[in-house]
Simulated scan of single mutants.
Amino acid sequence: MGERGYGTLVTLTRVKVLDPANPNKSTAIFGGKASGILNWNELKYPHFYTLRQQIRSLFWTANEVDMTQDVKQFPTLTIAEQDAFLKIIGLLATLDGPQTDIAARLSHLSTDPSVKSLMATIADQESEHNHSYAYVLSSVTTYDKQVESFEMGRTDEVLMRRNKRIVEVYNEFAERPSIGSALKAMVYTTLLEGLFFYSGFAFFYNLARNQKMVGTSTMISYINRDELQHGRAISDIFRATLAENPSYNTEGFTAWVYDQFDHSVEQEIIWSRYVLGEIDGIDMEEMAGYIKYRANKMLRMLGLSEMYPEYTKNPMRWIKAYVDSFDDTKTDFFEQASRQYVKTSDLNGFDDL
């Protein structure tokens, strides 16, 4: 039985906690052999140690952010700003909640203990992101409004249409874990980390540049910083998994990835117009260009060519003031003439990412 355009179906099951008959150095990220003993000085992919160190260096907690001024300012926002604020928090909570679970599921199915550790670190940060949205709302609005905001992910029709494919891909991975469904889940994880959050982030940064809700913007910048690193880590694990399983590196799968990006960009633009259309200071055409720019960056990180060559530079340059400079991606390694995945066949190749 094949797996939708691939070769033999490779199902995945939760691996043993310890299996001393296997080597400490994992033989593969999924479906391999490893004892479960993690020696950071003996890894199949030493690059994963660097990723974990970078992510751990960003540690923060929501209650470190002073919300005093935001509490006073929220009632002074326009009705449109208040409505967008609550809708966007609802979106972010809808996306970040499942990210904790997805990271844990990838960890449970991986036979590489360094990936398990990396996913545990990411899962912990995603959990804090979700907590931060509740923290923000509890600071600035009533309990009923907080509940309403978190209900949006399953009640707002525009948001539900926007998230339909995410639900399908994530649930397929949860219900039928395999190499193929894991690769698809990682594609959508990079979309979440590198594209789906960004019109929402722009809203909060736009408030901050008008001296509004600076505490919330500070919180969002911390989350933004984390998500950039998470997207980088997941894209690297994706590429390593693909290199280990070359039967999945097909034109059909590549076409599927491009289709998901095209659909996601379309839905993100629809969502941004729905939630930001009445917000002063955000130009909708610039926002659409920014979304396409973000899509190009994430495609390069996955090892694919850009879909929107006219958006290789950020059209909303003012956002750079609110995001750390490590957002810059080394693009030269990824700019390939053909629309095929960059094959990384050995472990040291990841040092060039």
Rank of each mutant, 00 (worst) to 15 (best):
E285F: 02
A233V: 05
Q211V: 10
D124S: 12
H131G: 05
D280C: 11
S107V: 02
E310R: 12
R232P: 04
G231A: 14
T241Y: 03
T61V: 13
K87P: 12
D70N: 11
V17D: 11
I234C: 09
A185H: 05
V17K: 09
N206W: 14
K72Q: 13
E266I: 02
T250D: 01
W40H: 06
T68I: 06
R176G: 04
G281N: 13
E306P: 01
S345C: 00
S264E: 13
T216Y: 09
R52N: 14
S35R: 09
A80S: 14
T76W: 14
F253N: 01
F150W: 04
Y258E: 05
D328C: 04
F333T: 04
E306R: 04
T254P: 01
W40G: 02
Y205L: 08
I237P: 00
K330W: 03
K44D: 02
R339P: 00
T331W: 04
R161G: 04
D70H: 10
Y222M: 15
R4K: 11
D351Q: 02
A337E: 15
P309H: 11
P113K: 10
R52C: 11
G252V: 09
S26E: 07
V257Q: 01
L77P: 15
E175K: 07
A28R: 05
T190Y: 10
P113Q: 12
L51P: 03
T111D: 13
M298Y: 05
N130I: 10
Y135E: 06
M186H: 07
T155A: 07
L302C: 07
A202C: 13
G180H: 02
S264D: 11
F48C: 01
M119A: 08
Y222R: 15
F350A: 03
L109E: 07
R4G: 05
S114L: 06
I29Q: 02
L92I: 07
G289T: 05
K313Y: 10
L38C: 06
D324K: 15
I270F: 09
N348W: 03
N314Y: 10
A243S: 08
D96E: 12
T331P: 02
R14S: 03
K87T: 12
I220G: 07
K87S: 14
L43Y: 09
N130Y: 13
Y293P: 04
I270C: 05
P315N: 04
Y205P: 06
L77M: 15
D101K: 00
L302F: 00
S217Q: 13
V147C: 01
L137Q: 12
A103K: 00
L43S: 02
G7H: 12
Y222I: 14
E151N: 08
T218K: 15
G97M: 02
E128S: 06
H263D: 09
E335P: 00
G7D: 13
I55V: 13
W271N: 09
Q73P: 11
Q336H: 03
Y248P: 01
N163E: 10
E335C: 03
G231F: 10
W271A: 07
L106P: 06
S272Y: 11
L302S: 05
D83W: 04
T141A: 09
Q340P: 02
